[in-house]
Design a protein around this nucleic acid. Structure first.
Length: 577
DNA sequence: GCCGTTTTCGGCCCGACTGTTTTCAGTCG
């Protein structure tokens, strides 16, 4: 699995640790050692800052799951760029064998045996071995295994991977809608429910006294390309759009436990189980049970289970083992911001630049959503490809918005904003006379993404010191699966944003989701304020603000952290802080 | 390899499903 580290600098370290784990699993006898490497990898993957900064302050071995041996390897890797231990491990196994692990239903034992007994060293060779029916010659392997492997190879080559949350969201809603009539209760679970930025598959949990009915309906849906497995309580299908969907059915008294279990995260579940054991319980997908007599304590709802463990209810977005269990036990969970708290959108485009709805359509759509205000932020002049507004057109748009507001045509107040390019030298793309006329400016990076960290940090610090800048738009400028985050010194940039009162945007555009959660957490520590926007280019995508809300909740944000939960008058004051 | 109010050893989540078995190993989540 490629690393999706919160700080891109940590990607190679995470890959290094996971590769060690992979090789140890294929060759090794100790099954816990690879787990230790994976745990350390997960910890480092979630770090908001380069692991080198933890090395510098001597705190690497204090990270969860990182002890003496692993911290030594991490240090060796960051200084030498390679790890002797891994170099030696690599000699024992061809890299193609590692790649086979990416195939569904091929794990370390299978890959190891294919290599040891058939000398299969690549996925291509595995395909050949299956076609020549050599795999079925191995003890414990048969005809169906060969067929499954060929299917997995095909799926892998067609790029079966993770999907944007927004793509999965619609499918999950369809599944819930379609299967709802067969269930007592039904809900999406998994990373989709936790509002992660990408999801690998869709998990649906349902309760029913008649599981066969819902299972049959699930497998018979027209969107099903093939059935991966089908049992009494659990089935998996591959949908025609390439997404995998899993359905799990339990009795209604276990619905909460199953929902909790399959919502995860895995790490959250592990910690929760540990806490359960400490308190004399056993927790599984059927409920919470007393250990001494196995009597049921809770299971009908998640609230009931957290309650029985003397905790506050933990919203799914927080279930990442980032201290939420400790906070819930201490009655100290944040009151997370909700979509209904948002009083207006501050990042919207119209057909004046690269949007496809008119100013009036956007205002009407904002009004329909019950917003108090909508900020229009078309692109500035440098954005030629996006039809950015020249100074002259920007002046005209301001006049137009003023006229619209005084016309009384809309109850919603239209704010004059702009998404102003942060130029490579850190200046904003409009002169002060325009910036001074705007209600506020959103500054964004749209060019020269590959600047060195030091230069990029300078660029951003210059922009953040501009008194006309109110909001730092999609701060990392990443596009999920397409473009990496820009690199900058997060401490310096967030510190400057806090000091200058520049609010950080959480952009809800489905392929941006920027800031991401770990950086939100980091920025909040610096005392930054935030805004939640849709970055919509069409009147229907104002609803994308829900993805910004999801990310904000994953970042532990409360209503008071978010500027656009304020009324218009207070907001304008905050934007000029 | 990591970890610790069961602490320096002995655990490390655990249940469903599949394909191959004839009681289970491997994979997945």
């Amino acid at each position: 699995m490629p690393a999706h580290a919160m700080d891109p600098a940590n990607g190679p370290v995470v890959d290094m640790l996971n590769e060690i784990a992979d090789i140890l699993e294929i060759t090794g006898s100790d099954r816990f050692r690879p787990l230790a490497y994976r745990r350390a990898a997960r910890t480092i993957e979630a770090l908001p800052k380069p692991v080198s900064s933890y090395i510098a302050e001597g705190s690497v071995s204090q990270l969860a799951g990182v002890g003496g041996a692993i911290s030594a390897k991490v240090k060796e890797f960051t200084t030498a760029g390679r790890v002797e231990y891994l170099e030696n491990l690599r000699k024992t196994i061809p890299s193609g064998v590692l790649e086979m692990l990416k195939l569904q239903d091929v794990g370390p034992k299978t890959a190891g045996r294919l290599f040891a007994e058939l000398r299969v060293t690549t996925i291509d060779e595995l395909e050949k071995a299956c076609r020549e029916h050599r795999v079925r010659g191995l003890k414990g392997f048969g005809e169906k295994t060969e067929e499954k492997m060929l299917q997995s190879i095909e799926f892998y080559r067609s790029g079966g991977g993770r999907f944007l949350l927004s793509a999965a969201d619609g499918v999950a809603a369809m599944l819930v809608e379609r299967l709802g009539k067969y269930a007592q209760r039904i809900s999406p679970a998994g990373s989709l429910r936790r509002r992660r930025e990408t999801v690998g598959d869709i998990d649906i949990i349902a309760s029913s006294a008649l599981p066969e009915g819902i299972m049959d309906a699930f497998a018979a849906m027209p969107e099903v390309r093939n059935i991966l497995s089908k049992g009494d309580t659990k089935s998996s299908v591959l949908l025609t759009n390439g997404l995998q969907a899993d359905l799990r059915v339990v009795a209604d008294e276990s619905f909460g436990a199953a929902l909790m279990y399959f919502t995860g995260s895995k790490d959250h579940n592990v910690v929760l189980r540990t806490v359960s054991i400490e308190k004399g319980f056993r927790l599984n997908e059927y409920g919470l049970f007393r250990r001494e007599d196995s009597s049921a304590v809770a299971g009908r709802s998640e609230e009931e289970i957290y309650g029985a463990l003397s905790m506050q209810y933990i919203p799914p977005e927080l279930r990442e083992a980032r201290g939420e269990i400790e906070a819930a036990s201490a009655n100290a969970l944040p009151a997370l911001v909700e979509e209904g708290d948002v009083k207006g959108d501050l990042h919207c485009h119209t057909d004046w630049s690269d949007g496809s709805s008119t100013l009036e359509e956007m205002a009407a759509a904002a009004e329909e959503r019950g917003y108090e205000y909508i900020g229009i932020t078309d692109h500035s002049g440098s954005e030629k490809v996006a039809n950015g507004l020249s100074a002259e057109r920007m002046h005209r748009q301001i006049e137009r918005i003023h006229a619209l507001n005084s016309s009384g045509r809309f109850r919603v107040r239209v704010l004059c904003g702009s998404e102003v390019d942060i130029l490579p030298d850190g200046r904003l793309d409009y002169d002060d006379d325009i910036l001074g006329r705007l209600d506020y400016a959103v500054g964004s990076v749209h060019s020269r993404f590959n600047m060195e960290k030091k230069e990029m940090t300078e660029r951003l610090l210059t922009a953040l010191s501009n008194p006309h800048l109110s909001i730092f738009g999609h701060p990392t400028a990443r596009e999920i699966g397409r473009r990496d985050a820009i690199t900058f010194d997060a401490d310096a940039v967030f510190g400057a944003a806090a000091e200058n009162g520049v609010l950080l945007e959480v952009d809800g555009s489905p392929s941006r989701l920027d800031l991401p959660d770990a950086l939100i957490i980091e920025a909040k520590k610096h005392g930054c304020g935030f805004v939640l926007d849709s970055d919509s280019h069409h009147r229907t995508s104002l609803a994308d603000v829900r993805y910004a809300v999801g990310m904000a909740r994953r970042g532990w944000l409360e209503k008071k952290d978010v500027g656009n939960t304020l009324g218009a008058a207070e907001l304008l004051k905050a934007l000029h802080a």
